[in-house]
């Protein structure tokens, strides 16, 4: 009787404890948003949000906190990275799912996955040592722009390489989700493999592909270290891809903890963090919803 009671008690305690811990970790995101908001409120009290977001003037000492250059920098780096990575990643994942034999796939896939494990700082170093000089001495001269090499193009390129493994594996999943029958039917009708990919797999699944890409990039958006090392970090609105920029994550990482005596400075940085968090959240939740709905429809 006694044994039975303790068993039961342990069971109750264990399950409650696990529930509590799970609840805490799942609430973490809301706690973070709330915390950031409470801190950022100070700056929101002095200036309106649109003002902060659209002003180009970043002079903390004068109390001017315009986020526009940073937001633009973030968007540009991400867009460039998408431009470089989407075509090559799509083609890679199509090759791996549709053309490659099992042997080739077993050989290539781990090599790509390995890229995901390389520390961000190593990508940054590689960017400085290889991509920066390449852009400075070879690519920019082609277009007649003088540049130090520390610029948007370099940042976008390095970021593109970093999202390769994620993007390849999410788009590979989308293609792999295509039932084998679709492939068979299309080929049996006399289509070539490429026609099959294009008409039977890509076009009907364009939403899924876009969602996969967005999901891949919701991570890229907040990527800090490597981009920060090569993008120049100048608080200006860039007018070409050969100019330096200053993305939001770099702004936060470079400045938080320093110059904190300036009034409202930390509130401004925390607002930047909040913005970044919310944007990434909106993108990844949106993409997940689209992907979920597609999966359900296929079943």
């Amino acid at each position: 009787m006694n044994l039975k009671l303790t068993r039961k008690l342990k069971e109750v305690i264990a399950s409650r404890l696990m529930l509590l811990i799970t609840a805490l970790s799942s609430m973490l995101i809301f706690v973070m948003i709330l915390g950031l908001f409470l801190k950022a409120r100070l700056i929101l009290a002095t200036q309106s949000l649109p003002e902060l977001l659209l002003s180009t003037s970043w002079h903390p000492l004068r109390g001017e906190f315009g986020f526009y250059p940073f937001i633009l920098g973030t968007i540009w780096v991400t867009v460039l990275a998408m431009f470089f990575s989407i075509p090559s990643c799509l083609l890679t994942s199509i090759y791996l799912t549709e053309y490659a034999s099992a042997k080739i796939r077993a050989f290539i896939k781990p090599l790509i996955d390995l890229l995901a494990g390389i520390p961000s700082v190593v990508y940054g170093l590689w960017g400085i040592l290889v991509v920066v000089p390449l852009v400075k001495d070879h690519i920019a001269p082609l277009f007649g722009y003088p540049t130090s090499g520390y610029c948007l193009l370099t940042g976008g390129f390095v970021l593109a390489i970093m999202v390769f493994p994620v993007l390849i594996s999410v788009s590979e999943e989308v293609f792999r989700a295509v039932p084998h029958e679709v492939r068979e039917i299309s080929l049996a009708l006399g289509a070539t493999r490429w026609q099959t990919v294009k008409h039977a797999q890509m076009v009907p699944r364009i939403k899924g592909i876009i969602a996969a890409i967005v999901l891949g990039f919701s991570r890229a958006f907040g990527e800090t270290m490597a981009v920060m090392m090569v993008v120049g970090n100048v608080a200006q609105v860039p007018s070409s891809v050969f100019q330096p920029a200053y993305p939001l994550p770099a702004l936060i990482a470079n400045n938080y903890g320093e110059m904190m005596s300036i009034p409202l400075y930390d509130a401004a940085l925390l607002l930047a963090a909040l913005l970044l968090l919310l944007i990434v959240l909106v993108f990844s939740v949106g993409a997940r919803i689209v992907l979920l709905r597609i999966e359900r429809r296929v079943v």
Partner: peptide
């Protein structure tokens, strides 16, 4: 193209009725 095939399970391609039939000719 010369040899058509009908599978065990009916499997429409994920598109409209019209596009299913037009798929082959378009290809």
């Amino acid at each position: 193209k010369k040899i058509g095939m009908l599978a065990q399970k009916p499997y429409p391609l994920p598109m409209s009725i019209y596009d299913n039939v037009a798929y082959g000719p378009r290809i």
